[in-house]
């Protein structure tokens, strides 16, 4: 990597920081409980809009993993998400009615909150429909993982997005508040993924899964990226560049081994495809606030809205993290 390239990366990082500073003026603190954050706490950052129905399970899932504090940006919800979150004792909440798209899909807001409150902490950035799974997550709290990463001098931990979907029509079983979404969306694609290396930023770029085959059957290269690096030992100079797909400095993107071995990694179970998805798709098509003018929702409405089913005979039913490990979707690395 030449000096010129390094210097360019430096400026990109500076640009992202400047952007996040500029965008933070659109954030209005609703409840600020950040004084409760203790050194060494693991923090969760999220941005959401109208996700009230998912929040009870989401918060409890991460509380059980050992998340100590939630820092959440509410992008103008109208379904009561804001009030619900404001009542939670371990949540700090910001509100904004600014454009999600112009905050680069929330990245700018969270970059700022992370620099402000996450410095020196392990920070997990997930959406309300993403459930983080890591090796031994059923027996060891997230603190065990971060302590181990600290001991191994590792600063970032990758977790691929795994799209989960139900068998049958997406809207066949209604999701109830507080329910584990994986009870409904319990199927996934075990092996139709494409992977390549992004030479510029050093991260891997993964595509595929049900969205590639059902929404983009004729143009799989347009399918959304599935590689994510949600768990990072945050330093105030860090910046997410594109969603949680990649970061700067580039060293944080090297969550994989190139010498033949396996590094440890996890999975984000993506419980997006519930009955709520179909109505969300219509709404988001109107708002056009998502990536590439909500291309994904458009592709959905064009391709499968008539018979909204993602299940196929090669689908695999989810059991636990060990199953994902055996399938090679994640790895224990040398954590035993």
């Amino acid at each position: 990597m030449s000096f010129v390239q390094s210097y360019r990366m430096r400026w990109r990082r500076k640009y992202a920081k400047a952007r996040s500073f500029r965008k933070h003026f659109g954030l209005r603190p609703v409840v600020d409980r950040t004084a409760l954050i203790k050194p060494g706490d693991v923090l969760l950052f999220s941005t959401l809009r109208d996700e009230h129905i998912r929040l009870p399970y989401f918060l409890n899932y991460y509380r059980d993993l050992g998340i100590d504090h939630f820092l959440i940006v509410d992008n103008d919800s109208t379904d009561g998400s804001g009030d619900y979150l404001a009542d939670q004792p371990d949540v700090s909440l910001w509100h904004t009615s600014a454009s999600y798209k112009r905050a680069r899909f929330g990245v700018d807001w969270l970059n700022w909150l992370q620099s402000r409150y996450g410095h020196g902490h392990w920070t997990l950035v997930v959406d309300p429909d993403e459930l983080f799974v890591y090796p031994f997550c059923d027996t060891r709290p997230i603190r065990a993982l971060t302590d181990w990463l600290d001991g191994s001098n590792v600063r970032s931990f990758g977790a691929m997005l795994l799209d989960m979907y139900p068998k049958g029509r997406l809207d066949a079983v209604p999701y109830r508040r507080g329910q584990n979404p994986i009870e409904i969306a319990s199927w996934f694609d075990s092996g139709n993924y494409m992977i390549q290396k992004n030479r510029q930023y050093g991260n891997l770029w993964i595509q595929g899964g049900p969205r590639a085959r059902a929404f983009f059957p004729d143009s799989p290269a347009k399918a959304p990226a599935l590689n994510k690096i949600p768990l990072v030992k945050w330093h105030r100079r860090n910046a997410y560049i594109s969603s949680t797909h990649m970061l700067l400095p580039r060293g944080l993107n090297l969550t994989y081994d190139e010498w033949g071995g396996e590094s440890a990694s996890g999975v984000l179970l993506h419980a997006k495809f519930l009955d709520t998805f179909t109505q969300k798709a219509e709404e988001e098509m109107q708002r056009k606030q998502h990536y590439r003018a909500s291309l994904e929702y458009k592709a959905y409405l064009e391709n499968i809205a008539q018979t909204p089913e993602l299940w196929c005979k090669w689908s695999e039913k989810y059991i636990n993290w060990r199953q994902l490990e055996i399938l090679g979707l994640m790895s224990k690395g040398n954590w035993a």
């Binding site: 990758g158 977790a159 691929m160 992977i195 290396k197 891997l204 993964i206 590689n227 969550t255 994989y256 081994d257 190139e258 010498w259 033949g260 071995g261 396996e262 590094s263 440890a264 990694s265 090679g328 979707l329 994640m330 790895s331 224990k332 690395g333 040398n334 954590w335 035993a336």
Partner: peptide
């Protein structure tokens, strides 16, 4: 665990194994 970290599973390409 040591074997997995140093040699990995043959032929596997995934998010944390991308052998040169």
């Amino acid at each position: 665990a040591v074997e997995r970290r140093t040699r990995g599973r043959p032929g596997l390409y995934m998010q944390s194994r991308f052998p040169a």
